[in-house]
Structure formats: structure tokens, C-alpha cells
Design a protein around this nucleic acid. Structure first.
Lengths: 344, 344
DNA sequence: TTGAAAGCGCTAACAT
DNA sequence: ATGTTAGCGCTTTCAA
């Protein structure tokens, strides 16, 4: 019963010993309630079964949902634990997180909805990190070292706008917070494309509001609420609203109610994300739903897959790729035909 | 420039060397972009700046909020990273998480809203973990080895019920999902105490619904929605409802609307938690708000504080304690006077 | 099939 | 003020 035999048992190389030796080792392990030190294993092997997960704020229900799915598949299917960090979309916080991950020997990291500047990401990759980014597209042209997983945001915008058009709306508006992310502009492009395809009678505006707090929980909803007041007083008023996400749509619904505008009789609203909360609003929110569990699975499989193919000889066996998921419209009660003109 | 000098620099013992030596070491560290390996430090010292955080599901907005506050203070004020795990309130998952934490050398853990059985917790403490539990009370009598941080749930229930009574309600109901946690029964007790104090004319019932899914995101809201249908058809119908948490209240609001019952004209509703989302419902939800940031700070300070006082000689310098925070009623639009009888 | 020994990157006690 | 060294708990090569 030497240390190497025990190490062999711990690592499943049970064929290299007699059955009774295995028995003896196993029962001793059980008797002592022995657990190998991950720190020592890591020091020796350079590996640790852990992933980093960066989110802007875990208090945001959408990121909470994603994080739950990611942690669950990382743990249940791959035996990896998850190190979580809130970044508040702050570059220094992101960089600090990468530094710590590296110091801890964690080389796989998942980044959710960060801002446009990707410089410090590529730097972290140079230092050996394997990174998967959610909700950003690879910069066209520039060969990225990062995997990108996201929903087809163009399609999401298109879906929403054409649903409104199909219901007879002619004055559409895309409602969003300021600050440009690629996902946001893709949504706008899809929205505009659908409006344009519907013919010259359809007008498509973009209404944009600035968030005051740096990164509060309710930031998005607050923006929606303010923008609702602005929209309520617009003449002519748009009758079909597409919100950049469900949270903003919740704010829109509340703000429109405050302003005495009835949804969906006077104005229709569509959200994006497909949070379970969207089924509870009043009226229940029609929304473009994202396939969160599927995306989470792909994200985790990519990090772990590339991690495995990276220590090896022919490094870079799995080149970075981009994964696009299709969104799906969920019809509920917040969309109806626009109000009729008195005389027509 | 020997290893020990470098170690001294790394650990802030800069007084033990000449200024120019320090300079030289520091610039070399910078030039090499050198970062000490946490794994090696940990192997040597037995310490690692990391905390475990167990939540039933991070997709639940309340836990997301708490987790955000906890991670932020752990990181910004104490330089600790957070290892997150979803437990789905499953004992095996909790035990597995403790095992992994121990293997990783993480000795501080925060447990949010776990179920009543605390046996495996005490076992983990025996093995050296420092644990802080949120939303559970210490079992009276039994001297616990665990810190408990929670809101004064009795007071929360009392606050809600007396608010309803003050608005003239006589038929109250506490609405909850089945499954007994200490926090839940405390809330009920406070609710009942307030009702009783209001005199014999006030009736206080408990309406309880079973969740079908094991642990879905929307479990709580679904229960609320179903229960709303049941409550709508009760004769006589309660006029003042206290929900065990905001999520259930959201379901109640949606279900009551489905049933054609107007809130607050026909029925008043009070939630508990104080999620930012409660400001967005229709009508905006009156709720008993928990001081989440303050609680998060106490939680983190306790784990880290006890961790520091634990490796030392006089072990157990900080005996486990219980911290109770006061809730606060936030009045919004979901509470009004009960409907008048036709003839009185 | 089993055992001995080197070494992963640090810290800290002990020289010098 | 600076340097030397043992050892934290493992894995793995090599020898027996």
C-alpha cells in the first residue's frame, strides 16, 4: 500500500493492482473518510475542475436563469464547480476576475454580456485562458480566439416586428437603453428590416433612454418606465413597441399603465428573453423567447471541450467557433390590433 | 533576491529589506507579470481566499439579489471569491457541495434557505467548515455550531397582518406553498398573533398549495396562481391576503386577475421580500421588505471573521450567534379597504 | 503488482 | 538584510 498505489486507485487505474489490494485501499479510504486535496493535485497536474462565470449582475433574472443552467450542467455533467463574479459591466472588475482565475489555476471562463471592448479578453486568452462569450458576436473579420454563443438577435428583432405588422400595426418603435452592444444593434437591424419589408406605410423608430444608476437591479425596468411616459405623449404615438428585453418591457407596461394608456388596446408590447415572469405581467407579455437551457449546454461543452484539447500536443485542436441559436415567439396577451381611426 | 525575500514582498513584509531590494523585486514582478500560485500558497498555508455559497436556485430573483450582494462584499471588502452552487433544496447536492469545498480547501460556506434537516450541516462543521446559514433559526435548545442570519419573520407576518387589519379587513388569509421551513412557520405565527390581537371579529386562515414541479423557476408563482383560483371561489372570501413571498404574490395577482377579482378593490394582497419587481406589478405590490444589503454584509463578515479566529490557538473565539433583522413595510397599491357590505 | 523518489510553487523557520 | 532549506499533498516516472 504505497502512495502510488493509492494515487492509482484515486485516478481509476485499478487494473494495475490485485483485487485484494484495491479492496484494502478502498476500505481504508472509506474508513478514514479520505479526500484528496485538490490544491495538491492542481499543483502537480496544473488542472482544477473549476470554471469562472462572469455576469453583469446575478440579480438580473435573465442572468440568474442562465447562471443556474450553466452551473447545473457544469456540475452534473462535467463535475466542474463554478466561481461566480458580478462585473457590473466594468472593465477593471473583469480584468481583476481574470487575474484571480489565473492565480487560482482556473483556465476556463464564461463571460456573459460584457461590453463591446474585447481587448482585455484577448489578453487573458494569450495568458492561457479558454473563453466562451455569451451574447456577443465575433467581430467580423478579426479572427477571434474566443468562442461566441448567442441568439440570433437579428431574427429576434425581425420576429417581433413582423408579429406586430401582422397584427396591423403601422407605427412601430424599438425601445432600448442607451449603450451599444452588438446584440442590441442586431436586434434593431432585424426590427428595421422587418418594418421595411412590410412596405412604405410602416414607420419604424428607435426610442432610447439613458439609465441613471450605474448598474442597479432595476435599471432596465426604470428605463422602460420613463420611456413609457415619453412614448405616451408622442404624437402620432407608436402603436407597436418592441422592448430590447423583458425587464425593460416590464417597465414599459408599468409606465404605460401610469400614463393611462391601455395595453394592448391602445399600444401593443413585445418583450425579449422569455423570463418566466413574463407570464405574470398584466397583461401577460408576448415575448421572443431564448433557448436558455440549450445555450447553457453548448457554452459549458465548449469551455470544457476546448480545455481538454488545449493542454495537448497539437494545441488549438478546436478552433474558436460561433454558435447562433434561434429564438421563438411566445404569444400572450400584450399584442392586439392597433386602435381604429374614428373615420377611415 | 532569494525566494524568501520575494515571499516577504508578496506578503507585505516589506520592512525586512532595504528599499532598493524591494524596488528591484517589485519591478521584476511587474516585468515578468508574475502572479503567485494560489494552489501552492494554499498547499502551504492551508488557506484560500474563497467562500462557498449555496442557494436553492440562483434563478430565483430573491436569491439572485442576495447572491449579488454577498459576492460583492466578499470580493470588494474582503478579497474573497465565491464558489456558487444550486442545491434545489436537495440534501445530496448540499452534501456533495460540502465535500467539494473541503477538497478544494474552502472552509467558509454560506447556506441560503435550506430545508429543516440540519444534520449534514453539523457534520460539515465537525470536519472544519465555518458555516453561516441564512433564513433559518437556530434550533431552540440545541447549541448550534452554525451562525444564523435571518429576518424577524414573526415581525414580518405581524406587520403584514396588522396593516391589513388597519385597513379594515376582517377575513385574512396567509397564502403559502406547502413544505415547512422555520421561516414560514414564524411568518404564520406573526400573522396569527396580529389577527388575534385585533379581536374576535378578525378571522385568520392559512391557505396552502402544493408545488408540482420539484424545483422550477416559477414554482412559487404557479402555486400563487392556483391558490388564487381557489381563494376566488371561497365563500365567504378572504379580503386580505398575505403571501409568503413576493413571487407567490405575483402569482396571486395574476390568478386573481384571471378569476376576475379586482385587486385591491375586492381583495388586498401583501407580499414579502421587497424585490424590485414588486414595484412593477399591477397593481404595484405592497410588501414587507427585507434589508438584503445589510444582511449580506453581516453574513460575509461572520464567515470571514470566524474563519480568521479559527485557525488560531484559542479556537472558537467567536461562538456561533444569531442575527435577526427587522423588516419594513413598503406601501404601494395592492392594499385598500375591503369592499363594503351592501347593507350594513 | 508494488514501492521509492522527485518535484509542482510556494511559506516560514532557521541560518548567515 | 538576505539566503537556505524543509515540507505542504499529491502524481508520475522509474526501479524493484
Amino acid at each position: 500500500m504505497s502512495v502510488s498505489t493509492i494515487s492509482n486507485v484515486l485516478n481509476g487505474r485499478t487494473d494495475r493492482m490485485r483485487a485484494d489490494t484495491l479492496q484494502r485501499v478502498q476500505s481504508t479510504i472509506a474508513a478514514l473518510d479520505f479526500r484528496p486535496s485538490r490544491a495538491a493535485q492542481q499543483l502537480k497536474t496544473g488542472l482544477t475542475p473549476m470554471l469562472g462565470l462572469l455576469v453583469p449582475s446575478i440579480a438580473n433574472p435573465m442572468y440568474g436563469y442562465l447562471a443556474r443552467e450553466i452551473e447545473t450542467v457544469a456540475q452534473e455533467r462535467h463535475g466542474h464547480r463554478v466561481l461566480l463574479g458580478n462585473t457590473y459591466r466594468n472593465k477593471d472588475k473583469e480584468t481583476g476576475f481574470f487575474d484571480d482565475l489565473l492565480a487560482h489555476g482556473v483556465r476556463g471562463v464564461i463571460v456573459i454580456s460584457s461590453l463591446a471592448d474585447e481587448g482585455h479578453f484577448e489578453a487573458a486568452v494569450q495568458r492561457g485562458m479558454v473563453m466562451v462569450s455569451y451574447d456577443r458576436r465575433a467581430t467580423p473579420g478579426a479572427a477571434s480566439l474566443i468562442d461566441h454563443v448567442s441568439v440570433d438577435n437579428f431574427e429576434a428583432g425581425r420576429l417581433a416586428a413582423s408579429h406586430l405588422v401582422a397584427h396591423g400595426h403601422r407605427r412601430l418603435a424599438f425601445v432600448t437603453a442607451s449603450g451599444h452592444t452588438t446584440s442590441r444593434s442586431e436586434k434593431v437591424r432585424g426590427f428595421q428590416a422587418a418594418a421595411q419589408a412590410a412596405g412604405p406605410a410602416v414607420r419604424a423608430a428607435v426610442v432610447e433612454g439613458r439609465a441613471q444608476s450605474q448598474y442597479g437591479d432595476s435599471e432596465m425596468a426604470d428605463v422602460g418606465r420613463q420611456l413609457a411616459a415619453r412614448i405616451a405623449s408622442m404624437r402620432p404615438r407608436p402603436t407597436g413597441l418592441v422592448a430590447v428585453n423583458d425587464l425593460l418591457a416590464f417597465g414599459l407596461l408599468a409606465g404605460l399603465r401610469d400614463a393611462g394608456v391601455d395595453v394592448p388596446r391602445e399600444v401593443s408590447v413585445i418583450g425579449m428573453d422569455g423570463l418566466f415572469l413574463a407570464a405574470l405581467t398584466c397583461p401577460a407579455l408576448t415575448t421572443v423567447q431564448l433557448p436558455v437551457p440549450e445555450m447553457a449546454q453548448t457554452i459549458v461543452e465548449r469551455v470544457i471541450g476546448r480545455l481538454a484539447h488545449t493542454g495537448r500536443a497539437g494545441a488549438g485542436e478546436l478552433p474558436p467557433a460561433e454558435f447562433l441559436f434561434a429564438p421563438r415567439l411566445v404569444e400572450r396577451a400584450s399584442v392586439a390590433a392597433p386602435p381604429q381611426r374614428i373615420a377611415r
